[in-house]
Design a protein around this nucleic acid. Structure first.
Lengths: 151, 151
DNA sequence: ACCTTACAATTAGTATCCTAATTATTTAAC
DNA sequence: GTTAAATAATTAGGATACTAATTGTAAGGT
């Protein structure tokens, strides 16, 4: 396979993987009402504690306007609350509600089980190589984006 | 790094890569009016010739209702035409217009150049390993999806 | 020949995701 | 102390993406 075709297939397989992962996750988690992105938000808050919207968006690597809509939905589901802090009045702090913590716990098990299922039959060293490829791809992407913004 | 963390980071890096790739591609291609998904549709039609919507959706690995909206936009841009065929009247054939062919050619160079830029500094054997990991991940996903549909 | 089932495309509803612009607030410069 | 620039969150507009339901057409069974 030419290098060109290899690249093309790699990128196509990655985008297909993401679409399918989201669809399967949403299907499995439908009873909890969680979608993949909302779940990732809950997991991030579980790891990091209370975060501002800007910091949570950074953690999830999505833009802040995108996060606004995700949080709107989660608020409606009573999974999180936005609160004003003591400091900067522009900043809102995101807190997980007790309901949110219960759902988060349930879905972490589901997520872990799904991830384990997906990597079956794949050598750990190959996963590690794949991760390093992804990290380098993302670094190159960041560099290219920065160059394009300057143009 | 634990295997669990490895998996989590791999999946997160892949989803971030996809979002950023789309954003950068759309930024670079904005003058042509093409988005990444529309570009992929044009490329697929260039490779395979006239296709039905069902076949094109399969080639792109997206659902047919999604493709309907993508094609609606491309039709509006005069990049493609939907035509009835001689056979089954349910089926519509997708043809690239002369304008579409011009744009397709322009954007293929951009896409290739971007892909080459992104894989700089990555050994070909590592790319190959990554591709095989993705193929296995996608196979496992398909199996899990099939199992879940039966449930 | 007729009816049931299956199929291709579309519509509806919803979620995620982006960029650009706006608003309220904070910070920095003078 | 005042003003300009920067920042956090929101809104607007648009694209991609899914699932479920609907419509028109084709195929299979009786």
């Amino acid at each position: 396979m030419s290098r060109h075709t290899l690249n093309e297939r790699l990128f196509d397989e990655m985008s297909a993987f993401n679409r399918r992962l989201r669809a399967l996750f949403d299907l499995r988690a439908r009873e909890t009402g969680l979608t993949l992105t909302r779940a990732r938000a809950l997991f991030a808050l579980g790891r990091r504690g209370v975060l501002s919207q800007k910091d949570l968006a950074e953690e999830l690597e999505i833009e802040t306007p995108t996060l606004v809509r995700v949080l709107d939905g989660m608020e409606k589901q009573n999974l999180i609350e936005r609160r004003a802090g003591d400091g900067d009045r522009r900043v809102k702090e995101i807190h997980v509600t007790p309901d949110g913590e219960v759902v988060s716990r349930d879905v972490q098990d589901l997520a872990r089980s799904l991830r384990n299922r997906l990597v079956e039959g794949i050598a750990e060293e190959d996963l590690d190589t794949a991760l390093h490829v992804l990290l380098q791809l993302n670094r190159n992407l960041a560099v290219s984006s920065a160059e394009e913004q300057k143009a």
